[in-house]
Amino acid sequence: MLERKSPLGGHRILGKFGRKLKETGVTIEEVKDFSYIEIAFWDPESPSLRSKLSELLGIADWPGPAKMQRLKGGVLLRIAPDRIAYLGDSGPAEILEAAVAPSEGSVVALSHSRCYLRLGGAEVTNLLSRGLRLDLRDHAFPVGASALTEIHGLGVLLIRRDKAQYDLLFMRSTALNLWHWLNESAAQFGYEVL
C-alpha cells in the first residue's frame, strides 16, 4: 500500500504552541487516512436512487442541505443541490463508487485533493470566528451541521462534529496558507498540534 502524503508535510510539528495559558484553548489534529468522494446526480430527488443508496449504506435518510448524516465509518453530506459527498473510511466510498451507474450520476474521487483537520478545545469556535463568516452560535450551526464556505479566502468544508469539535476539509495546493492562518490565529488561545 502506498502512503498518501499530506500537503502539510514537515510543517505540521506536534506539540504545544502560542500563549502559555492554564488550559490549552485549541487542539489541531490531522486526519490522514480518509476517503472523500463527490457524487453528482442527474436526478437528485429520485426516490428509487435514494432508497437504493440509503439501503446500501445502512442509513435511514438522505442528508438535507447543509446537514451531515452519520453512517458507519463516515458521514454523508449534501453539498450542492445535485451533489452529495462522502467523507470517512474507504469502505462506504467503494460501495458508493460501485453503486452509482453513469445513468444515475457521476462519481469523482477527491481524497488526494483535500487536507483534513479535526479541531477541538474550549476556544475552537472562537478561533474559527477569526476566519469563518458563518454564524456559529449553537442554534445557527448546531452539532451535525455542515457548510461549504471560506476561511482566509480559501474554500473549506466545515462540519460541526460536537459542541467543541469541528472538521475542516480544504484544498491541497493551498493547504499551507490555511495552516499558517490557523497557527497564527490560534496562538492567542494556546494550541496543541496532536
Partner: peptide, 10 residues
C-alpha cells in the same frame, strides 16, 4: 437557496 445567508465574499 441551498446554503443559506452568506456574505458576498463567497
Amino acid at each position: 437557496p441551498f446554503c443559506g445567508l452568506r456574505d458576498e465574499t463567497e
